[in-house]
Amino acid sequence: MRKLFKHFLFVSLFIFLNFTNADDFDRGLEIALATDKNFSGFGDSQTNLKMLLKNRKGFVTERKMKMKLLEVPNDGDKSLIVFDSPRDVRGVAVLSYAHKVGSDEQWLYLPALKRVKRVASKNRTGPFLGSEFSLEDLSFQEIEKYTYKYLRDEDLEGKGCYVIKRIPLDPYSGYTKQIVWIDKTDSVILQIHHYDRKSFHLKTQIFKGYKKYLNKFWRPNEIHMINHQTNKTTTLFFEEMTFNTGLSEKDFTQNSLKRSK
């Protein structure tokens, strides 16, 4: 009996210790919220994107696109991506409305058929244009779409980082968890390890060349995505990023999707 009691005490103590870690959830959220400051109040932005796709043997191909972003107060952001190359997908465009709560909306425009097609938001986990990025990776990652937990402090390439774990709330996410390295001084994401549905460390995403725009918003110059299963790499370059370009809701409608070039 006494032995059992002792055992019980031990278990309770263990549970108690674990509960004190509830703070780690708060701390994780706090760190994530700090990164979000880079995305609140930016209004709108436009940028050209270049994607370099490298296969296992080092063969490189290029994709080009344009992206427009609009911040929507109290909701997720709106984005419009138009492809420039390869030539057979030129003019194909994707319009997305992200939401803080509930599933996102997404439409695809096929210029050859002049057709706007709604895309089921579940189908966003596969490779995007043959790259290592999925549409999920490229869509705006609202704070409300994850739960967070602080793990530890750690240096990454000489920079002091917080390491947090985030778990997607979207049941259709391609990931079960993501481990995120966040720079302590500038509150920007430096690295993400993506774990797939089998909890296998599938991809590593590295953010490089952060630049400060409008004295306030940090944006990376390039994002690398390394797939550990296929050994393929995709690098996304942001070129000519501009802010306050005068975009409004009207530039993110189905009519604007139809005339995007």
Binding site: K122, N123, G174, T230
Partner: peptide, 12 residues
């Protein structure tokens, strides 16, 4: 209906 990533591949 689309099955994304069938047979643990990148095929849909």
């Amino acid at each position: 209906y689309t099955q994304v990533g069938i047979l643990s591949s990148s095929l849909d």
